[in-house]
Amino acid sequence: MRERHINAILLGGLLATALAAWGLDQPFTITLATKVAILALAGVGLNITLGLGGMISLGHAAFFGIGGYAMGILASHAQNYTPLMEAPLLIEGTNSMPVIWLVAIAASALAALVIGALSLRTTGAYFIMVTLAFGQMLYYFAISWPAYGGEDGLSIYVRNGFPGLNTLDPIQFFGLCFVLLCLVLLFVARLGRAPFGLALTAARQVPARVEAVGLSPYRLQLVAFVLSGAITGLAGALFADLNRFVSPAMFSWQTSGEIMVFVILGGVARLCGPVAGAALFILLEHWLGALSEFWHIYLGALLLIVVLFARGGLIGQIAGREAAHD
């Protein structure tokens, strides 16, 4: 089966699940589908660094959390009618989703620029450890900074609004997240074929040649890291809106690990790998979680099997290895 067909089936399946649940009046299933779409979006972000760029970032929870807190901070100020800042200029909170998304994207892109600029001075195992450490730094910062709830996190009572939609209606919020996911997928698909994406792929495979033609691998990788962080940040803002709650847990190393698991379960460097991975993860959480309180043992065992024996993830198993990026 061609990867293109699998992608269509995956996205179509997700949409059909949500619509069927809407028709059958099962809001919980719609919420699960929304969660899949949002977590997939976070994975799509990570996949730019991991799949296209070949950089193993174990710190993407940093951007997921920053996106979440961008939403939490803006919405909590709007909710309490207190300005975010008075001098030198007045900045008020907001509960408009588009504004929150822009702030989440900008803030996580900025963080990715700083973290990426430092981390990309290293490669290989160092890069993994450094990104993991910076993620942990933000986790401890979120815990020790009391202004926005500290360890307890922040609750937002009403979901933020989007012009013309009722975001409290599960199917409408799902639609919003699904459209964003599709737009970002479209962007990433084009990015992979654009000169930038090709140069980035080359920088992963043979950095020396990229340098020989006058491109800087460091810059290519940094731009990719920033794009990736921004997308994961957007997913973080949506995730916070889904739960109407943010907490330092969004910054934890487990979150970084889980986002990576979505990408791997689905298939690294596959466009819709994160969609497949996130869907599988949520289904496993739902089914195995009902079977046993200790479902992470089974998840761990499954992950071991995928890594040791079924390389290429779900999409790799169906589409065959030759269609992957390398």
Partner: peptide, 22 residues
């Protein structure tokens, strides 16, 4: 490669942690 190592050892963390909790 390092990616497989990270994932497999992450999976081991899940097994060890939940196993100990069990």
């Amino acid at each position: 490669d390092h990616l497989d190592q990270v994932l497999a050892t992450f999976a081991l963390i899940l097994v060890f942690s939940e196993g100990t909790r069990w």
